[in-house]
Amino acid sequence: MTATNTRERVAAALEGLTFELVDTRDGMLTLRVPSATVRTVLERLHGRAGFEQNTLVTAVDRFPEEPRFDVIWQFLSYDHNDRVRVETRISGANPSVPTCTDLWSGASFSERECFDMFGIRFDGHPDLRRLLMPQGYTHFPLRKDFPHGGIEPDRLYREWDAKRRAEWGANA
């Protein structure tokens, strides 16, 4: 899994597309691509460069910078035993990126989690719901402007509880 081999293979697969190599502390091949071409890049990585497995889909909130979110994908190739990371920067207003669940089915939960935590929409995801927080929750916890202690963490429970008490009162 020499880094040069991976770089050449990926460069060949991404022929004709613009990308920028990012310097990382772990030495993994990291591509920064414009958000307009990210879907094509993912398709090529899947089809031509042989990255068979999606390791993670997540985001980094750079608040208060604008554009605000870095969306990160990371892939693993079993045949070549190497990894690649793809990053793109998108704006904070109505953030969305194309989905990759049709290429890697396993990205589904990761995308749902990313939507749940950052409010980033994955266009074309077949079932984009909240994953970890309850369905009625209205905030996005991993955004930097969300306090650690939460905003009305118990609202949904209290609503449910009030309703339940009211029902018992009526039936008694």
């Binding site: 310097d23 990382t24 502390r25 772990d26 993994m28 990291t30 390791t55 993670l56 997540t58 980094v60 750079r62 990160i72 990371q74 990894r83 990371r85």
Partner: peptide, 27 residues
């Protein structure tokens, strides 16, 4: 900078993806 490290845990690939901006607060 950023770094990813995965270990072979008993359930599979357990990875930590860390991003730091050089301050004491992890990004």
């Amino acid at each position: 900078g950023e770094a990813y490290h995965a270990v072979e845990s008993s359930k599979g690939e357990l990875g930590f993806y860390l991003v730091s901006d050089g301050t004491s607060r992890p990004v």
